[in-house]
Simulated assay, not measured.
Amino acid sequence: MSMTIPDTGNTPQKDNATNPAAKPNKGGLEGIVAATTAISKVDGTAGRLVYRGYDIHDLARTCSFEEVAHLLWFGHLPNQKELSELHERFTAERSLPENVLQTIRELPSTTEPMDVLRTAVSTWGAVSISGKPTIEQAIAVTARFPLILAAFNRLRNGKEILESRSELGHAANYLYLLTGEVPKDEHVQGLNSYLVLLADHGMNASTFTARIVASTESDIVSSLVAALGALKGPLHGGAPSKVQDMLRTIGTVENAEPWLREAITHGGRLMGFGHRVYKTADPRAEELREMARVADPDDFKLSRHVEETALALLDELKPGRRLYTNVEYYSAALMKAVGLSGDLFTPTFAVSRCAGWTAHILEQVSNNRLIRPEAEYTGPLNETFVPLADRS
């Protein structure tokens, strides 16, 4: 399949010192424009997420992950021929070399799956990747993320690693490799929607990290390993399983109101509520809510009741804070429903986001300038130097 990097319209960034329109710096770089992108737009005020012009609700309800990956990489939704070609390319890349498998086997069974993914991706890249990032490389590494996770998960549970099935799509094959069984349609649909919804999200911490590394003219795997390190942090992608911990602690519908009120009153953090960007409902949470309802109706009852109770209490006890359900809340419910263990939640986020990361890496290198922001120095000036022998 012939593949070329699309014209993204990316333009070089200007140094703040020579850019009179640059906004003043503030903690966390909030409000600072660090790059231009044609890949996705997050409208936090309106609660809208757009991939290359398409509303996320339309994509999540109708498209496969492969279609959305094609959209992110090539700039347009594929026709049937293009989609078939991409599926064939994914299928051709569904293997792990022996050195990667050996690396996975040698890691302790207690290793966090995010660390396994980071380590195995780095091992694969050391012998498989060189030169400037390409779409071919993006497809190759995206195809292998779920293979790495499934291989480790089976090994730590005393099971043999499975071969991929060429007739299965990206989401279905991942579930098959984890369980050894052809997954239920509703589970495939739920996981596929999740992968679509999480595939990209503007200039988040991990995407920014990937673009910084790519801007140095490093390779695609180095950029991805850096992104994985950023995603692992609990303030970014490392918290979905904690939603399940919270729901497990609450336990029953009757316990929801007193538990939540106590937590909010005493400054406790409600997992799955609030977002750095969205000041209204997260559109991804809206879609995931319906997926979770279908995937496990029984567990959904508690999740939904806790959500409704928490939102009412937040409005009562934290008026004006505009705290809403975020993507983590129903991500946790959905992934549990399709059979994933809690420590696979964040790595599965990475399975999805790999498509967006690689799209941003390709966009960065297509019209590159080294990302080199400034820092406002707040330390002392004009200290008097004292030789070592004279220091008290």
Rank of each mutant, 00 (worst) to 15 (best):
A171S: 15
H187R: 10
N204D: 12
S223C: 14
P146V: 09
S206M: 05
L195M: 14
H187E: 08
T216A: 14
N173E: 00
A151E: 03
V196W: 02
V188L: 07
D219M: 06
A143L: 06
F145K: 03
T209W: 01
R154D: 03
L175N: 05
L175H: 04
P183L: 09
N153L: 02
L155Q: 14
I161Q: 07
K184Q: 13
E181T: 15
L155M: 14
D200P: 11
G158H: 12
L198V: 15
G190T: 13
M203H: 00
R211E: 06
T216K: 09
R165L: 12
A143V: 03
S166W: 00
H170S: 06
V188H: 00
G169L: 09
K159Y: 06
K159S: 10
A214D: 13
G169K: 12
G158I: 06
H201R: 13
N204F: 01
G169F: 10
T207G: 07
T207W: 10
E181Y: 08
E186D: 14
A171C: 09
L178P: 00
A205F: 04
G190F: 04
S218Y: 00
Y194E: 08
N157S: 14
M203W: 00
L168V: 00
E160W: 01
L147G: 09
H170R: 10
V196A: 04
V221R: 00
A199K: 11
L155D: 04
L178G: 02
Y174M: 09
A199V: 12
V188Q: 00
R144F: 05
V182T: 13
N192T: 14
T207C: 07
D185I: 15
